[in-house]
């Protein structure tokens, strides 16, 4: 039993409200990213205006696109494995919705307060690999199969730097709980100085860089977009998907980008907390979501900046980078962090 605005709520009422907010927390950042980054920022970087017709400054373009997808015919290839083909988008979106659960947006504003927080997030984030394999296999298309195998090879190779980069944060915070990680950053000190707490981007910068690179690869975005390379694999595992089913994958991709940048904001930038206000202050229940969203936009700006400015890697370079550079670096980061934690 908790109370919101002095109204007592039962578990079911409370969970209903949380699910509505969760729906918004998945769809709104995804929409914002597509409009602000994919439509506008990308266009400006390429010296063009982007969509300008639908609504003022093209701001209704997104609704127009969704309307277009609603009118598309549902084409499933004759040779496809139909049940698996239809199930794949569900699996991908389930992964995204379970991922958003761990994001805390204030001292009392959270979806669920899991003690295994970040570990749970890393675990459910790999469910989407199964969805991608299902999509690629069931399409009975050579491009799809190659694309999904490439995606799987990439996602599991970059899962490791992602997981190992987080370990540094866990060592410093001493907990897996996302909420406690925020508190640990708010109450932390950098070598005895606690003026701005200890946002782990300052003391775990290597971890932050590794995390961002790995997230970029997990999202199969350039420079790591070989699985969906348009010029060689005609969007890989998505080749045979069209209309609404394609839109589901698309929403899943951008919502996952939103959630991952939110997780990066919580782990490395202090989450909903800003310096200068006591971390247990009730104000953060109101202010927190806005602060978290601001930090999310900052992290996702970095992600999309890389996306729009780097050329694609080759498949062998990709695996080499993961296994020969990022994983040893992540292990070294863990070792240094652990030594400092015990010694200081």
């Amino acid at each position: 039993m908790t109370s919101v605005l002095a109204v007592e709520l039962s578990y079911w009422q409370e969970t209903g409200i949380r699910m509505l907010i969760g729906l918004a927390a998945v769809l709104l950042p995804a929409g914002t990213f597509v409009y602000v980054y994919l439509f506008k920022m990308m266009s400006f970087m390429q010296s063009r205006l982007g969509p300008m017709e639908a609504g003022p400054y093209g701001s209704m373009q997104l609704l127009a696109e969704v309307g277009k997808f609603f009118q598309k015919e549902d084409v499933i290839p004759e040779r496809a494995d139909r049940p698996v083909f239809k199930m794949a988008p569900f699996v991908v979106l389930v992964s995204t919705f379970l991922l958003v659960l761990v994001l805390p947006a204030g001292p009392d504003a959270y979806f669920v307060d899991l003690d295994v927080g970040i570990f749970f997030a890393l675990a459910v984030s790999s469910i989407s690999v199964i969805g991608i394999l299902m999509a690629g296999w069931s399409s009975a298309n050579k491009y799809s199969l190659l694309g999904s195998l490439r995606a799987t090879g990439q996602l599991i190779a970059y899962e490791l730097p992602l997981v190992l980069a987080v370990v540094g944060v866990v060592i410093q915070a001493g907990t897996l709980n996302m909420q406690q990680i925020v508190f640990a950053q708010a109450d932390g000190e950098i070598f005895g100085w606690g003026g701005i707490g200890n946002p782990y981007i300052l003391t775990q910068f290597v971890g932050f860089a590794l995390f961002l690179i790995a997230v970029q690869a997990e999202l199969t975005q350039p420079p790591f977009d070989m699985p969906v390379a348009e010029s060689e694999l005609v969007t890989g595992y998505l080749t045979e998907y069209s209309g609404m089913r394609f839109l589901m994958f698309f929403i899943g991709e951008f919502a996952t980008a939103g959630v991952f940048s939110g997780i990066a904001a919580v782990l490395f930038l202090g989450g909903w907390w800003v310096p200068g206000l006591d971390s247990s202050s009730d104000w953060f229940n109101v202010l927190g979501p806005a602060v978290l969203f601001g930090k999310m936009m900052f992290v996702s700006f970095l992600i999309f900046w890389f996306r729009f400015t780097y050329p694609r890697f080759r498949e062998d370079q990709l695996q080499k980078l993961a296994w020969k550079v990022l994983i040893p670096l992540a292990l070294a980061n863990i070792a240094v962090t652990a030594v400092l934690k015990v010694a200081v």
Binding site: T15, R18, M19, G22, L23, F69, F70, Q71, K72, E73, D74, P89, F90, L93, V94, T96, F97, L98, V100, L101, F111, V112, D113, L114, G243, M244, R245, L247, M248
Partner: peptide, 29 residues
């Protein structure tokens, strides 16, 4: 808390189902 996790999974399935179901009312065949 794990019941909430399960409910969010169901929410995702519901969302995809609703989108694809709705579009089947509108789209041509």
């Amino acid at each position: 808390s794990y019941l909430t996790v399960g409910l969010f999974g169901a929410l995702a399935v519901g969302l995809v189902g609703a989108f694809i179901g709705l579009s089947s009312l509108v789209r041509p065949t």
